[in-house]
């Protein structure tokens, strides 16, 4: 019998602490697979955020930093500028990247740091108990928007992919999702592409991944993926918004 699908060497054997159905796990796997398949694992340094993925340093099977809340792009800048041969990625939540770390991400992107940023958008602060995030959907109930996100009071959700896209420097920016197998397959291809650009020393690469937080959304894992599809995808359109100009290969629709 041939094993055609198994865990990747890019991840350690340690079971994750994520809640059932939390797609942090899927995103971890895609990143782990990408660095392993591209043969980059042994020169990769990952940066875990503050958020539910804080323990990512235990799960990725490569050298890992744990950064302070929101500062992963600055830590990555310091590391990459010091040892340009390393492959640097940050793995950040939406509170981490789009709220407290807004300054760091914008400037790392604008300097064109040759790193890969994996931005996990689950529309909520997971770790601290489901508070409102900059990405929380209009009307969405969270523990700090108990009457639903009131856009008159706190504005509309931040579309980070579009924000990064409008900067001149970054060359590879994309938004993908995890709510169906098909989207996971696309997401994987995009994440791998991002790492490939970094390995080629090309550009700053940013991949936003729509993710679920069944626990804090108060939904079952199955309902949660439906919610992503129904509520998030229309507001956060999927696709590659920017890619280095001289890249010719088309975004394969998952091999279709």
């Amino acid at each position: 019998m041939k094993k055609i699908f198994a865990s990747t060497k890019g991840l350690t054997d340690r079971p994750t602490h994520y809640c059932p159905g939390c797609t942090h796990g899927v995103i971890h796997r895609m990143v782990g697979e990408s660095i392993e398949e591209l043969g980059l694992r042994e020169r990769t340094v990952g940066i875990a955020p503050v958020g539910c993925a804080v323990l990512a340093y235990e799960y990725f099977n490569c050298d890992m930093f744990e950064a302070s809340h929101g500062r992963a792009p600055a830590v990555a800048t310091g590391a990459k500028r010091s040892r340009p041969d390393l492959i640097l990625f940050t793995y950040q939540g939406d509170g981490d990247l789009a709220s407290i770390g807004m300054g760091e991400i914008i400037h790392a992107a604008n300097r064109g740091e040759k790193i890969t940023v994996i931005f996990v958008n689950n529309a909520v602060y997971g770790m601290t108990g489901g508070q409102m995030a900059p990405t929380t959907m209009p009307g969405q109930y969270t523990t700090t928007s108990p009457f639903g996100r009131d856009t008159a009071e706190v504005g509309y959700p931040v579309r980070m992919t579009e924000v990064i896209t409008q900067l001149t420097t970054p060359a590879f920016v994309a938004r993908v999702s995890t709510h169906t197998t098909r989207e996971i397959v696309r997401a994987k291809a995009v994440i791998k592409e991002a790492f490939r650009y970094q390995a080629e020393g090309r550009c700053f690469t940013f991949v936003e991944v729509l993710s679920t937080c069944p626990t804090n959304w108060g939904l079952s894992p199955r309902e949660a993926v439906k919610w992503v599809e129904k509520e998030m995808v229309p507001y956060y359109p999927l696709g590659i918004t920017k890619r280095p100009e001289d890249f010719t290969e088309e975004w394969k629709d998952g091999g279709h």
Binding site: M1, K2, K3, I4, F5, A6, S7, L11, P15, T16, Y18, G21, C22, T23, H24, G25, V26, R29, T181, R182, V185, K188, K252, G254, G255, H256
Partner: peptide, 19 residues
């Protein structure tokens, strides 16, 4: 999400996507 499934095949099998 938890890398809990391994897939084994012998000979022909379906593949919807190149993963």
């Amino acid at each position: 999400p938890d890398v809990a499934i391994e897939v084994y095949v012998e000979g022909a099998h379906y593949q919807f996507f190149q993963y």
